[in-house]
Write a protein that binds this DNA or RNA. Structure first.
Length: 261
DNA sequence: TATGTATGGTAAG
DNA sequence: TTACCCTACATAA
């Protein structure tokens, strides 16, 4: 589940459910001992930056959460189950209970550590203040492929393997194309597309890159994406290529997405 | 029961 | 580049 849209959606929901309320906190799994210190504190704010989620507490300390590849949150309003032994962190107020399962990171950090994390993240298409020009200038300077650049969180925060595949297909760009080949106007159009797609992702909870002629909720799983994990290119019918790059599977139609050097 | 897979990331070699 | 961490679920055996 977790590309940037997922994290922003979680931050939005957790803000709604918990901000301003006093929290009961625990670590059923026992692997987050500091949960005890949060018990009975007021939940001040939830924040999302790229794929990082932060819960702010009254002393400005933060709980820093990163879901990694298979972390997830589950929330309950009624018939709250006993926590499974994989629940790293359970947080509840009078109306909601939230379980955090399998996160890559779940740690308390102070203000300066928070600033350090933010400083290492590139612009996030889901944040209003983010600067696509900065990204483009960075792309011009680097000697990496656009496929690798899109996955680099210090260049662009929040894009993952699915949005990468979909974006490069939408713009008919081969993933191995050097990042510096991307023109400024083209990059701005790509950024705008990312913003639209990811905002729709926050709204629907799913990554949807196909034309939502049908209402998004009615799209079947295989109707939401164009190229990611597909066998056949929706544009030309050619077989979709997939290969491994930096341990992640890349998908592309090598007929439609011309290789440039 | 075992295996494979996943929308992520880091640290070691 | 490889190893490894985090978990759930589907499928195979």
């Amino acid at each position: 589940m977790p590309e940037g849209h997922t994290i922003h959606r979680l931050a939005r929901d957790h803000q709604r459910w918990f901000a301003g309320s006093r929290i009961r906190a625990s670590s059923p799994q026992g692997r987050f001992a500091e949960a005890d210190a949060l018990n009975n504190l007021e939940f001040v704010q939830a924040q999302a930056w790229g794929k990082h989620l932060f819960y702010v507490w009254p002393n400005d300390s933060r709980l820093h959460i990163h879901l990694g590849l298979f972390g997830r949150c589950r929330s309950y309003r009624s018939k709250i189950p006993a926590p499974r032994n994989t629940v790293r962190f359970r947080m509840a107020n009078d109306v909601r209970t939230l379980d955090l399962i399998g996160p890559a990171i779940c740690e308390m950090i102070d203000e300066s550590a928070f600033r350090g994390i933010i400083a290492r993240l590139g612009p996030d298409p889901l944040r209003a203040d983010s600067d696509p020009e900065w990204v483009w200038r960075s792309l011009q300077r680097r000697r990496v492929s656009i496929g690798q650049a899109l996955m680099n969180q210090s260049l662009i925060a929040g894009v993952g393997n699915v949005y990468r595949a979909e974006l490069l297909f939408a713009f008919r760009i081969h993933p191995d194309t050097p990042a510096r080949q991307i023109g400024r106007d083209e990059w701005m159009a790509m950024w705008f597309t990312l913003q639209r797609w990811m905002a729709l992702g926050v709204k629907t909870g799913r990554i949807i890159t196909t034309d939502p002629a049908a209402s998004p909720s009615r799209l079947r799983r295989d109707e939401r994406l164009m190229i990611y994990k597909k066998a056949i290119c929706p544009g030309c019918g050619h077989r979709v290529s997939s290969w491994l790059n930096a341990n992640r599977t890349v998908y592309a139609c090598e007929q439609c997405q011309k290789r440039v050097t």
